[in-house]
Every structure is written in C-alpha cells, then in structure tokens.
Design a protein around this nucleic acid. Sequence first.
DNA 1: ATGGTAGCCTTGCTA
Length: 257
Amino acid sequence: MRIATWNVNSIKARLPNVLEWIAKTSPDVLCLQETKCQAHDFPALEFQSLGYQVEVIGQKSYNGVAILSKEKARDVMAGLPGDDLDEQARYIEATFGDIRVASIYLPNGNPVGTEKYPYKLRWMERLRLRTLDLLASEQAFVLAGDYNICPTDDDVYDPVGWREDALCRQESRDAFRSIVHLGLTDAFRVFHAEPHLYSFWDYQAGAWPKDNGLRIDHLLLSPQAADRLMGAEIDKGPRGQERASDHTPVWCEIGPA
DNA sequence: ATGGTAGCCTTGCTA
C-alpha cells in the first residue's frame, strides 16, 4: 500500500496539480494538508471521479486536512484529542485495510515569543499522547503530514540562519524526538541517509532554483508498519511545475502483512 | 541588497 503526504497550500488553487499527480502515481492513500476550505467546499467530486474516497476536516481560509483513498475509510476520527476548545482543522485519522493513517498539519509556531509557539508545543504534546494510545493498540499505523519540524541540521539548507526558528530550534526538535523515540520510524531516513534533501522550498527569494529547502514533511511509522516498509521517496516533480505548492509529495510503500 | 511570493479574505494575516 503506497501512502503519500502533500501540503498543497489550498486544494482549490492546486486542484489540477493534485489530479495530475494522482493520475500519474496512483497512491492508495493520499494525505493532504493546508486545504484552506471548509469541508463542504472541498472538491470531492473531482477525486471521486478518479476512484478516490474523500475524508476531510476544514475551516475557512486556513489549515484543513484530508485523506483521499482507493479503499473506503473506516473508523474516521476528525480532530486531535486533548483540547475540546481547539477549533483548528489540523488532524484526521482513519483506517484503510489493516493500516491506520493520520493526516497531520502541525502548527508552524512562528513567531517564537507569541502565543503561536506554546500552542505548537502543546499540540505536539497532544500528538505524543495520541501516539501512545495508538502504540498500545499494536497495529500498523502511519502518521503522515507537514510537521513543521526540521528534525536535524541535515534537514535545513542554512542551519545557522534557521537556528532560532520555530521549525528548527532545540525545544521543537526535543518535542519531535519525544514522539519519534516512543518507537516510530522516519520512513524517508530508512532509505536516504544523505543530508540536504528537502520537501519544502519557500516561494520567496528564489528558494526553489537555489535548492534552499527544508525537510518538514514526514511519514512516521509504528513498529508494525516499519517491519513492512518497502521504500520511501520525495517526489520533487510537482514543486517544479506551474502554479506549484511550496511543498512536494513524500510517500512510502508498506508491503502486505 | 534589510528584499522576496502565494493564497485567502481579514486589502492584513499566515506561511
């Protein structure tokens, strides 16, 4: 089963790009982030016509996550547990075949020093607690999405310049590690040890042609999923196209049980 | 050289 994640930076603006990529690569599950529309405005019919089911949680203008899938989703859970007052649409989770999948849009957290940063850290603690619950189930699962975290300096084009940014600072990396070290596997790093491979390039200052990127989109696998991991790649193709998202898709292949 | 882009609606905010 191939599971992909892609921050599309508005599903309406990116519809032709996403439809083309699905037609070309045929993922079994595609997690989307920053869809930037309410659920009833999500262009579900266009994906259904390609044979995909759509599960989505959204809000106007900001955030929004979805999971597209060939198989029907079971046991859909919209929203990350742990704060009933949090209305930001950043988390949806469902089961496909024997694999549980989450589409995650983790808060950016900038600027550090505003309320945005403690919100990011609290959200990560909620994700850690959710991960503990999922691990206790002993099922195969994949937590896929835009984590807004560069795990190490190898994942940043300019580590010194970004040292105090919410995506790179030590407190952020510690929180990310506290989740990964529960026993998850960064699927991409199983196959690619070399530094400076990225999934995001800012629109500004010619970041894409200069390869000034960040690796912030991750697929974190439970032990039961990691045992079946066959491959993982960043597909840089979509970032080079017209009207591209600033992120490009990342995917992994999970073999049969 | 103190910049630059994209998308949304809030013509500022978020990233």
